[in-house]
Amino acid sequence: MILERLKADNLGAVRHGFYTRKGGASSGIFQGLNCGVGSSDQRDIVAINRARVASDMGVAPTALVGVHQYHSADVVVIDAPSDARPKADAMVTNQPNIALGILTADCQPVLFADPKAGVIGAAHAGWKGALDGVLSRTVEAMEALGAARADISAAIGPCISQKAYEVGPEFFEDFIAQDHGYSQFFAGGNEDRMQFDLPGFGLHMLREAGVGHTAWIGHCTYSDDARFYSYRRTTHLNEADYGRLISVIRL
Rank of each mutant, 00 (worst) to 15 (best):
E4K: 10
R5G: 02
A8S: 12
D9E: 15
D9N: 15
N10E: 10
A13L: 09
V14S: 05
H16M: 02
R21P: 03
G23K: 01
G23I: 03
G23D: 11
S26G: 06
S27R: 06
G28E: 14
F30N: 07
G32V: 05
C35M: 02
G36T: 04
V37S: 03
G38K: 02
S40G: 04
I45V: 15
V46C: 04
N49P: 00
A51C: 02
V53S: 00
V53N: 00
A54S: 05
D56W: 07
G58R: 05
V59S: 04
V59W: 03
T62Q: 07
A63E: 01
L64H: 02
L64C: 00
G66D: 06
S72P: 13
S72C: 09
S72F: 06
V75A: 01
V76T: 11
V76A: 12
V77Q: 15
I78S: 02
P81V: 00
S82D: 04
S82L: 01
A84P: 04
A88D: 06
A88M: 08
D89Q: 01
A90C: 09
A90D: 06
M91A: 09
V92S: 13
N94I: 05
Q95E: 14
N97E: 08
A99R: 00
G101I: 03
I102E: 09
L103I: 08
L103H: 03
T104D: 01
C107W: 02
Q108N: 14
P109E: 06
P109N: 10
A113Y: 04
D114P: 00
K116W: 01
V119H: 02
I120D: 06
A123V: 03
H124A: 13
H124V: 13
H124C: 15
A130M: 10
L131W: 10
G133R: 02
V134M: 09
M142W: 14
A147T: 07
A148P: 02
R149A: 14
R149K: 14
A150V: 12
A150M: 11
S153N: 09
A154F: 09
A154M: 04
I156S: 12
P158E: 12
P158I: 07
S161K: 07
S161F: 07
K163V: 15
E166L: 11
F171D: 10
I176G: 02
H180W: 11
H180P: 06
Y182V: 03
S183Y: 05
F186R: 08
F186W: 12
G188V: 08
G189P: 10
G189H: 13
Q195R: 15
Q195T: 11
D197Q: 11
L198F: 15
G200L: 12
G200E: 04
G202A: 12
L203K: 14
M205P: 01
V211L: 05
A215E: 15
W216Q: 07
I217S: 05
I217R: 07
I217N: 04
G218L: 13
G218E: 12
T221M: 00
Y222P: 10
S223N: 14
A226S: 13
F228A: 10
Y229I: 08
S230L: 01
Y231S: 12
R232Y: 14
R232F: 14
T235P: 07
H236Q: 15
A240L: 07
Y242H: 07
I246C: 06
L251N: 00
